[in-house]
Design a protein around this nucleic acid. Structure first.
Lengths: 100, 100
DNA sequence: AGTTTAGTTCGAATTTATTCGAACTGTCGT
DNA sequence: ACGACAGTTCGAATAAATTCGAACTAAACT
C-alpha cells in the first residue's frame, strides 16, 4: 500500500473551527511556532517528547486542517506553514496566534 | 448544594490553547459571535439545537477558558465576551476570529 | 406557600482524540 | 541487493469531550 498523505484543504476549504482546533494543542502549536520561526522543516527536527507515530498523528491534524502543507523531498517530508492561505482566509489570525 | 459557577481565569491566567480550544466548536463560536454582535446576553436567548444541559456545558467551557464572563442578574445569568482581557493577552486574536 | 423561569449539576452513554508499538513504504547510501 | 533512515499506517488501549434526561437551586411572581 502506498503512503497516502491526507489531502490538504484548498484555501477556500479552510474551516475556522478546524484551524482553531488544530492550533489548540500545545504540541501542535509548538510545531507551528517553530515553522513560523525557522521556515520549512522536516518532521524529524521537532523535538517532541513523543514517539514518531504520535508526532505523525499531530502532523496529520495540522495538514487536514490546512495549517501545514507537506511536500516530499527525497526521503524527508518538508512541512511549511500555509501562511498566505491562512492570512487570505482568516486575516490576522495566524499573526495573533504566533504572538501569544 | 449551591450553584458553583466554575471560576473564570484572571486575565493573566488566560491560556492560548484553552481559548483556541473553546473557540474551535461551531456551537461555541456561534455563541461568541452573537455576544460580539449583540453584547451581554443571558444563556436563554441563544437558539441552539441542543437541550439546555448541553448548552450549559458549552457555556462552562467558554467560562473556564476565559472567553466569556458571567454575572448573575436576578434569575438570569448574563454573559459577556471578555474582549478587553482577551485583547490585552492575545492582541488581534478575537478580532480575527470574529471576522472569519 | 406554590409555580414558573433560568440555568446548573449529576450520572451515564456515546463519540471523538490521543497515545503507542509494530509493521510498513519509499528513498538514499554502500 | 541490503541496510539505514524518515515518516506513515494500522490496531487497540486509554483518555477526554460531548450529549442528554432527570434532579436540582435560586429568584421572581401570584
Amino acid at each position: 500500500m502506498p503512503i497516502f498523505l491526507p489531502k490538504e484543504p484548498s484555501k477556500k476549504e479552510l474551516l475556522m473551527t478546524a484551524v482553531l482546533y488544530a492550533l489548540s494543542d500545545e504540541i501542535r502549536l509548538g510545531i507551528v511556532r517553530q515553522l513560523a520561526a525557522k521556515g520549512e522543516q522536516p518532521c524529524g527536527v521537532f523535538e517532541v517528547d513523543r514517539p514518531k507515530s504520535s508526532l505523525s498523528h499531530h502532523f496529520r491534524v495540522l495538514r487536514e486542517s490546512g495549517v501545514v502543507a507537506t511536500r516530499k523531498d527525497g526521503k524527508a517530508l518538508m512541512n511549511t506553514l500555509r501562511q498566505e492561505d491562512l492570512d487570505a482566509r482568516f486575516p490576522g489570525l495566524l499573526k495573533a496566534v504566533l504572538k501569544g
